[in-house]
């Protein structure tokens, strides 16, 4: 087990190296720089700024500096916001995105799995059609439209929930639902098809032939086997949902992390780009690792430890 995890951590560092390298060169290949703005600086000032932030160094020196700073998680100051460290920016936005993301994850998983199971059990009947209509809507309606519709119904018409900002729990409900709608729909469809597969297997017949009731058969024998594809989907989902959504944050006026991802790129704020990229990648790679470990717990056929020890 330990060998396996160490090996996987090694892979994570290797992947990070490639991600950082590619990001660095893409970033520099894009025209413009952090100090290019509408109000042109005098050449002297610009040269001085470039010198101060190390942008005059040859590209390979800059690249090495970057690698070092990335692996020490010290990304330095933002180019754009004077006096702010990259880590401050992430630390400032993360709590909002984290709360929102966790709430959305919970909604997407709970309701998605439930809808999928109902659809599978009521296959080709009313319950199935209803659940699948919800799922198709969730997938095909873009989140910004979903957000606007939710705001209109629940905040303006019914006056039940606050329309924007992030202050109390009530404020988080609408953005979390809007953020959850797409993954919810995806999980529902995933769950439905895998549950249908599982319900037609022989071991479900065996379970029934023992005289177990419908509910026990579905939940004890069906669910655990059917949920495996959903678990593998959770890995990438965690990373993307916890780091916030630019669109949802803009609409609901939430100072989350999603905003920083987009703004840092348009600003060519090199250190912030690198910081957010590394942060996202680490989150993604670690959550994929965790999902793999959980997979081994749910499905005894997958022997995480044995594979790692051998190879």
């Amino acid at each position: 087990m330990v060998t396996y995890i160490l090996k996987r951590l090694g892979y994570i560092i290797l992947s990070l190296f490639f991600i950082i390298t590619i990001t660095f060169f893409l970033m520099h290949a894009a025209p413009g720089g952090p100090f290019a703005s509408e109000r042109a600086l005098t050449p002297a000032i610009e040269a001085q700024m470039n010198e101060a932030y190390g942008l005059n160094d040859p590209i390979h020196v800059q690249y090495l500096d970057y690698l070092v700073s990335a692996f020490t998680f010290d990304f330095g100051p933002s180019f754009k916001y004077v006096g702010q460290e990259v880590s401050d920016i992430i630390r400032r936005g993360l709590p909002y995105s984290l709360v929102l993301g966790l709430e959305a994850m919970f909604i997407a998983l709970a309701i998605g799995v439930l809808l999928g199971v109902i659809a599978a059990l009521k296959h080709n009947r009313f319950g199935d059609y209803t659940a699948m209509i919800i799922a198709v809507l969730g997938i095909s309606v873009p989140s910004f439209i979903m957000a606007a519709v939710l705001q209109y119904i629940f905040a303006i018409q019914m006056q039940l929930l606050p329309i924007a900002r992030f202050e109390t729990f009530a404020h988080t409900i609408l953005p979390a639902v809007a953020l959850a709608s797409t993954p919810l729909a995806f999980i529902a469809r995933l769950m439905r098809s895998s549950m249908l597969d599982v319900l037609s297997t022989d071991y479900i017949k065996t379970a029934k032939s023992k005289g177990l009731g419908q509910r026990v058969v579905t939940y004890r024998h069906g669910l655990r086997n059917a949920i495996l594809p959903v678990i593998s989907y959770i890995g990438p989902l965690v990373a993307s949902i916890l780091t916030g959504s630019f669109v949802i944050e803009k609409i609901f006026g939430i100072p989350g992390l999603g905003n920083e991802f987009v703004v840092s790129v348009t600003n060519r704020d090199y250190t912030v780009i690198m910081g957010t990229t590394v942060f996202f990648s680490v989150l993604l790679l670690v959550s994929i690792l965790l999902v793999d470990l959980v997979y081994g717990l749910v499905d005894p056929r997958i022997k995480v430890a044995a594979k790692g020890d051998k190879g």
Binding site: T201, D202, Y203, K205, T206, A207, K208, S209, K210, G211, L212, G213, Q214, R220, H221, R224, N225, V298, D299, P300, R301
Partner: peptide, 27 residues
């Protein structure tokens, strides 16, 4: 159906064709 549950397994047992698929893999 409820009464059938007391017949299945208790009064009538069943063995299926393919033992590779007739047992729950996660139990």
């Amino acid at each position: 159906e409820k009464q059938m549950e007391n017949i299945r397994g208790k009064e009538i047992g069943m063995i299926f064709q393919d033992p590779m698929t007739s047992l729950n893999p996660t139990m």
